[in-house]
């Protein structure tokens, strides 16, 4: 494990903590896309099918359990919690999951490393993760005043992806790490989706003004 990978995992974890903080302390999920959260739950459910069969490390197993538990509990809170669900911007969060899920499924069936159930599901999870942030970005663009926690949440997610790319470059140079085209390209696409957001996020932070995305 290198420093980029560890920092990437930690920013990923921090993004989840920031989101849970918002839900638990403010009892609000305003500005958070349920569609994106449901896609993440789907990502972890399909990627970690190996959680009880292939042991990597205690660290890996614990992190997988954390991401599974938190992603499903966030979805539960947004859909069912008496108070939290009232703050959900249902009318604004209109992105259709199926438009993302279906192409990802077809692509995973066609472009994969091995045509087995587990491998196709794993590949599918990579493709879905690459585009899972889209409903959230659309919602951000529609939100006039983005609160700090929501901005930080998306920023931390983007940072996690950027650090993973540094991790792959580092692994490629230091280990005899395979060139995993599927992982790398979908990871790169995912990171590029944040580029625009990063630009406005850093600008608002530099100028000390509220984050607002142009329509």
């Amino acid at each position: 494990m290198n420093i980029f990978r560890l920092s990437g995992d930690m920013t990923h974890l921090m993004s989840v903590i920031v989101l849970l903080l918002k839900i638990h302390t403010i009892k609000s999920c305003a500005g958070i896309s349920l569609k994106t959260q449901e896609l993440y739950a789907l990502v972890f459910a399909t990627r970690y099918l190996d959680i009880f069969t292939d042991f990597v490390s205690v660290y890996n197993t614990i992190m997988k359990l954390i991401f599974l538990a938190t992603s499903f509990s966030i979805v539960w809170y947004m859909r069912h919690h008496k108070i939290v669900r009232r703050s959900y911007d249902k009318e604004q969060d209109t992105f259709r999951h199926l438009f993302l899920i279906l192409p990802c499924l077809i692509l995973a069936l066609v472009v994969n490393e091995k045509f087995t159930f587990k491998e196709v599901m794993w590949t599918f999870s990579l493709y879905v993760e690459a585009v899972a942030i889209l409903p959230q970005l659309v919602l951000l663009q529609r939100t006039k005043n983005i609160d700090n926690l929501t901005g930080q949440y998306v920023f931390l997610l983007g940072a996690y992806r950027a650090l993973y790319i540094l991790n792959w470059i580092y692994r490629y140079l230091t280990e005899k790490h395979f060139v995993h085209w599927i992982t790398w390209i979908s990871g790169l696409v995912q990171t590029l989706l944040y580029a625009d957001f990063f630009y406005y996020y850093i600008n608002s932070w530099k100028n000390n003004v509220r984050l607002q995305l142009p329509a």
Partner: peptide, 10 residues
Amino acid sequence: VSESDVKDEL
């Protein structure tokens, strides 16, 4: 290095 070495990532 095994083909699945990337699966040690999250």
